[in-house]
Write a protein that binds this DNA or RNA. Structure first.
Lengths: 192, 192
DNA sequence: CGAGAAAGATGATGTAGGTTAAGAAATGAG
DNA sequence: CTCATTTCTTAACCTACATCATCTTTCTCG
């Protein structure tokens, strides 16, 4: 059951009673996306966060030259959303697209707020989730400031081994912050 | 009173009773730092977060070539800490230093945990704080991926006008991700 | 399974920003 | 106030990575 993946994930941080679990479930809604389908486009207000149970999502921006920049991937067991738009309820900056057929469990912004009131423990859960995400983002900033592209690629391979042979190279290149051409050259160098 | 700055800050996100406010105060400890004094060095476990009421702090890492990279500044009304170390209680990666004589109100990790239990509302406060911080960090990643150094400098000026004529140029250069030499050239170009 | 599209590789050339070095200006401890 | 230290500027040269163009390989969806 996909929802077990989510409940299991949550149980790492907070303990839920059977009652609370059932309240929580009522607030959720499963959503499926076909490859290349979008969860949201920039300029729209983000209305829910999505927990991936199978497949993979990517969130990216498009710069003034039309070049895409990947902010994050969401393989199974990860949450995805346009954080900025979710919390401000203003038009978002991210495009979120399914890289392959993807199953998610979504929690709408309104239900999330209801959940905080019905089961305050979830304040804690999402606080911890956000803290972890913040730390990962801070580390990425430091990496971007202090490492070469090649070193960042090495780190990516180490940190996300499952993603490496799963994603198109150009997506990884974009996440790391180089062009597909340079990425190709880097990889060739690595194989001596 | 410095603590009013903090209470005022908090009241933007949650409402506290007189009772709760007083519990909160009991968990706090004021700490002063002289210019160039360190709150923590990398490799130490971070034991508290600091809310700045006057002065300014900076958090930075040192790369393998000995070059410093500024992750964040904390002027008055901002929190500072090594998030990674605070939540994991493992040796931290940041050096946190006072850029000038600085007054802070600190909340130890242990008191923060007690606070969550004594006044659960603070789960919400710190969740929101962390969410905002996450959004700012995501934006910085996007900026680093998609803008030139000159554009990032422009943004910095717009977003942190008070910091601009307050901080040594080399610190801003480091935050933006360029060398002091290039920063100097950029600034000259701007003045035509 | 086959055609069209997308992804990847490779070479030639361009450029944003780094490095090194040295002098000028600002700053702060005594 | 002053000298030592740190910060800032300028200039010549260098390199990691981008761009552009072309070709090959791999998908994908009818």
């Amino acid at each position: 059951m996909p929802i077990d993946l989510l409940l299991n994930n949550i149980s790492k941080y907070i303990h839920l009673t059977e009652e609370e679990r059932s309240v929580f479930k009522d607030y959720l809604q499963p959503k499926s996306f076909k490859r290349k389908q979008f969860l949201m486009h920039e300029g729209e207000v983000c209305k829910y966060s999505a927990f991936v149970t199978s497949g993979c999502l990517r969130g990216y921006t498009v710069d003034k030259n039309g070049i895409e920049h990947v902010l994050s991937f969401a393989p199974p067991d990860w949450w995805m959303g346009d954080m900025y738009s979710l919390i401000s309820q203003k038009p978002g900056i991210l495009n979120i697209e399914a890289l392959e057929d993807t199953e998610t469990i979504t929690l709408s912004k309104t239900n999330q707020e209801k959940l905080y009131i019905a089961v305050p423990k979830f304040e804690r859960f999402f606080r911890i989730l956000t803290e972890n995400s913040l730390v990962a983002n801070q580390q990425r900033i430091i990496d971007n400031l202090s490492l070469t592209a090649e070193e960042r690629y090495g780190l990516f391979c180490k940190r996300y081994p499952t993603l490496i042979d799963h994603l198109p190279h150009k997506q990884i290149a974009s996440y790391i912050g180089v062009t597909p051409e340079f990425f190709s050259r880097m990889r060739n160098r690595r194989l001596h």
